[in-house]
Structure formats: structure tokens, C-alpha cells
Design a protein around this nucleic acid. Structure first.
Lengths: 195, 195
DNA sequence: CTCAATCTACCTACTAGTTGGTAGGCAGTT
DNA sequence: AACTGCCTACCAACTAGTAGGTAGATTGAG
């Protein structure tokens, strides 16, 4: 039942860290082979082409997001805390440098140069995330736990854009605290009663 | 006094459109040679290396931003209109597909994979833009034409992040109106008196 | 004014190294 | 016997960059 040491997963993990650093064209099979400790040709055994590899990666990334958000929603029902937890998750990822930027935000920025099979998965991620945030904000507004000025969908898109932009700024400044600073003020505008 | 047909400028323009599409590793000298209509080796005559080319490109991009913002500030002194014009400029660029994303926002997202000479120029752009926005917001707040909840610098960073994130979202959705929608609601929160 | 030296902008032809991908073999497991 | 997971040894195409040459414009000295 527990996972056997899985080379395919190691390849995906290596690919993710390379993509996060430099995008789709920022790594090669040779790079992955070196960090995983197998030969270049062996990667093709697990993922016939680079497109297969990245497509699988992004698809799994979305799946993880879906299950993660669903579970989060069960444990933390209140909208303000939900948004705070989501922002806090990324703040933590950036601070400990484990995941300094969202894979899909990065890939979306170079979308026109992406193989279409990958592009469609990236779009699906954006649609899911914006849909999830819209739901959270809609419920928060209905319950009076969030103060919104525009339609929930617009607030959700603006929130998502701020999160992604803040990731990029954090990277540009090389300062891990920039992200948290931007998000604290953004959340403050949505959450009425500061304790 | 008027500009002679300049191959170097053509190369820079081609490089910019390639970078905007797929980042630093998303194009080659061969790609540029083809659209400019010269041979690959001739590019090296104008820009000895790829680093030289992109460094020049980003440096000029920043220079243009500096002169553009300075001139904008002289013509449009009021902070709310200044922010609206800045947002409107990008909304227009995205709608007519002439510049669907900021070169530096894209390059910043893949910063760890960039040659250091380019990375330093990208950082300089972010520092200038955030500084400019901080000044605009600071003055607007002092004059009462902008309503801010946090320090001007924090508001400026949040605004810049939202703009960059909205560019990425517009790209992900393939919808030119997403950017304008996000920015209209963001501006509305900063600008008190809607006419 | 003129003629040679230099400079500019491009060319062809090449290099060494990298790219994603293929063919086929081999040891261990089922 | 078939499958899995890896290997060595390839491949053609592409990468940034170099070497060396040429045609034409610009310059400067006699």
C-alpha cells in the first residue's frame, strides 16, 4: 500500500523543480537524468516525450490542487480563514524556498510557446483555481464574513492575479517577505473585522 | 536626424516579440535571423552574444519606461488618472495583441535561469516601477485623491503584482477583456469618488 | 581631387556541444 | 515467455558562437 521507490515520481519531481526555475525550455532530459541518477534514454521509458512528461506533471499538479482545496475546505469552512490559509501556504513555500512559484503561473506566462497539450492543462488549472476562489468569496460575501466591492468572480480573478504577481515580485526582489507583505494588505481589504 | 533603417533595432524588436512569447530560452539566433531577413552570423556582428542582445533589450526597455513615465507625469499630474492611464496602456496593448505581456514580468518569472547580466536589468526595472508607483500613490494619498489602507509602498507593490498577475491570467484564458476587468475593480478600490 | 586605408554590414562555411528521441540489448521479476 | 526498468550506442536537428572573406561606404593624407 505504501509507495515503492518510484523513478517516474523522481523524474516528475526533478522536472518540476527545473520548470519552476526556468520554464518549459529551461531544462533538458540530460538535466533530469543527472539529478535522478539514471541515463537520459531511461527517461523516455517512463515518459516517451517531453510533452508527455510535462503534461503528466501539470495534470497531476491540478489533481493535487483539487484534492488539497477540497480537503482544506472541509477542515476550514470559513472564507476568511480559507483565503488566509491559501495565501499562507504560498508564503511558506516561498520562505522555505521549497516551491518559490506556482508551476502553472510560470507556464501560463510563456503559454504561446508551449506545446498545445501542455497549454490546455495549464488553462484547466487557472479555471479550477479561479472557480474555487469565486465560490469561497461568494460564500464569504453571502455570510458577511468578507467585504467585496465587485462581483465574486471579479474579486476572485483579482485575488488570483495578485497572488501570481506577488510570486513574481518576490522572485524579482529576491526577498521572501515581499509576498507576505502584499498578501497581508490584499486580505485586509477583503476581511472586515480585524481581531 | 531621422532614423535610418536600423538592423540592430529590427533584431531587438524581433527578440522582444520572441521573448514575450516564450521567454529567454524560447528563441534562437536562427529564429531572429529568419524574421529580420539576415543570416544568423550577422546578428553576432550587432550583438556578440545572446546575453548582450537581451541585456541591451531589457536596458532599453527600462529606459523607455523611465522616459515614458516621466512624460506621462508631466501631462497627467493627478494620481488617479495616472494609475488609470498606466492600466489603460496595458489594457490596450493586450487587446490589440501588440504587447500581450510585460517583457520584465515574463523574464522575472524565470529569473533563476537567466544569465546574471540580464537578471540585474530585470531587477532594476522592478525597482523603478515600484518606486514610481509608490510616488504616485503617496502623492495621491497626501492630496486625498486616493484612498489607501496600507503604506504607499505596500499599495504600490500590491498594485504592480495585480497588473502582472492579470497579464498572466489574460494569457491563460486567452481572453483580452480579463485584464481590464481585474484592473477596473482594483482601481475602484483606490479611487474614492466615482463620477 | 584621388587613391589607399579603414570601417561597416553582411555573407558562407564551419565548429563543438546539446537537443529530444530511437534501436536494440540485458538482467531480474512475474 | 513476457514484462519491467534500465543500459549503451546511436541519430538528425539544432544551439550559440567563430573564422575568414567580400562589397560598399567613409575617411584622411598627399
Amino acid at each position: 500500500m505504501d509507495k515503492p521507490s518510484n523513478t517516474a515520481d523522481d523524474i516528475l519531481a526533478a522536472a518540476r523543480s527545473f520548470i519552476v526555475a526556468g520554464g518549459y525550455n529551461g531544462f533538458s532530459y540530460a538535466d533530469i537524468a543527472e539529478v535522478v541518477g539514471i541515463r537520459k534514454a531511461s527517461i523516455h521509458h517512463h515518459f516517451p516525450s517531453k510533452v508527455d512528461l510535462v503534461q503528466t506533471l501539470v495534470r497531476r499538479y491540478l489533481e493535487d490542487a483539487v484534492t488539497g482545496m477540497t480537503e482544506l475546505e472541509r477542515n476550514v469552512p470559513e472564507s476568511p480563514r480559507l483565503l488566509r490559509t491559501y495565501a499562507g501556504f504560498w508564503a511558506q513555500c516561498i520562505e522555505d524556498a521549497s516551491r518559490p512559484i506556482c508551476v502553472c503561473a510560470l507556464l501560463a506566462s510563456e503559454l504561446p510557446a508551449l506545446p498545445p497539450e501542455v497549454a490546455v492543462e495549464v488553462r484547466a488549472y487557472f479555471q479550477f483555481l479561479s472557480g474555487w476562489l469565486t465560490g469561497v468569496i461568494e460564500r464569504g460575501a453571502a455570510q458577511g464574513t468578507l467585504t467585496i466591492a465587485a462581483a465574486p468572480r471579479v474579486e476572485a480573478e483579482a485575488f488570483m492575479a495578485t497572488v501570481h504577481g506577488a510570486m513574481i515580485s518576490a522572485r524579482a526582489y529576491g526577498d521572501v517577505l515581499t509576498f507576505g507583505m502584499i498578501l497581508a494588505s490584499t486580505l485586509q481589504k477583503l476581511i472586515p473585522a480585524p481581531d
